[in-house]
């Protein structure tokens, strides 16, 4: 019982730690959005192209954060460690 509790608690902490990965994409997407705003300010007629390029870049930059999220989801909802006991 104690082992189980320790594994569950450690998994919860690990899931929380995995979500720290969200910092990176946050900074990156903010940077991309800021640059896109600059670009729209410089060249307002290319707004559509700039927006779609920015969204595309943001989605690609997001993948590291998504990996962290997937690790957290696995630890919370499909924990593989609890079966090892």
């Amino acid at each position: 019982m104690l082992e189980r509790a320790i594994v569950l608690a450690a998994s919860a902490v690990g899931a929380g730690l995995a979500m720290i990965a969200g910092i990176g994409p946050g900074i990156g997407q903010g940077y991309a959005a800021g640059k896109a705003a600059e670009a729209v300010g410089r060249q307002p007629e290319a707004k559509g192209d700039i927006t779609s390029t920015m969204l595309f870049g943001c989605a690609v930059a997001e993948s590291t954060g998504i990996y962290g999220l997937v690790v957290a989801l696995i630890l919370l909802f499909a924990n593989p460690l609890i079966n090892l006991l």
């Binding site: 989605a59 997001e62 998504i66 990996y67 999220l69 997937v70 989801l73």
Partner: peptide, 16 residues
């Protein structure tokens, strides 16, 4: 892997 995780992660996170 990154393509499928991206789509899955976004929708699953929205659901959670």
């Amino acid at each position: 892997i990154s393509m499928s995780f991206r789509h899955f992660g976004n929708i699953a996170a929205g659901m959670v």
